[in-house]
Amino acid sequence: MKKIIFLLIAITLIGCTSENDKASNEAPLTKEAFKTPLDSNVWKALSGNQFKNANEVFLAYEKEKKMYNSQLHFDNTMSMWHKALFNYSKDLKIEQVNVILNDMDSMEFNSVSFRTYYRLLYHHNKEITNYRSKVNDFYKKNINYLTSADWKNVELKEQIIKNLNKEHFVFK
């Protein structure tokens, strides 16, 4: 019996040690700090079928917004969240829509999530009083940023400008 108890304790201790090793190996490098953490819920949101409804996704978004606020990967993670919210744009409440639109407006550019912004305005245009000016301001901000951006991947930049123009002019 003593041997069995000793064996059980040993198994438990081995398990704890491997968890500690894993944690110490995950300390991010400076460059790594720009990456969205692998345990962020945004990966689940982007896979499209892990949340029950729009409200649940919005709550997860708000939670991570507060959690990652002071970190280098904040903008990158938020860009991914904005992209993920596209699939839920119709079912979000107007209060939630306003929060997301304001968050997107406060970012320097939104190339990852153009479609979410336009889709939110499309579904909630009757509830947003200044939606026409929001469309124009959003386009102006992004097209100015993109045309003056000095990117290595010129082909991607041109494709993104093309997509933005398409989204904007279809919406207008």
């Binding site: 720009f34 991914m80 990852v112 930049k157």
Partner: peptide, 14 residues
């Protein structure tokens, strides 16, 4: 896809 801007690595497309 990422681009570098003033020392920051910015996500530009997914």
């Amino acid at each position: 896809f990422y681009e570098q801007n003033e020392g920051q690595w910015e996500l530009v497309e997914v």
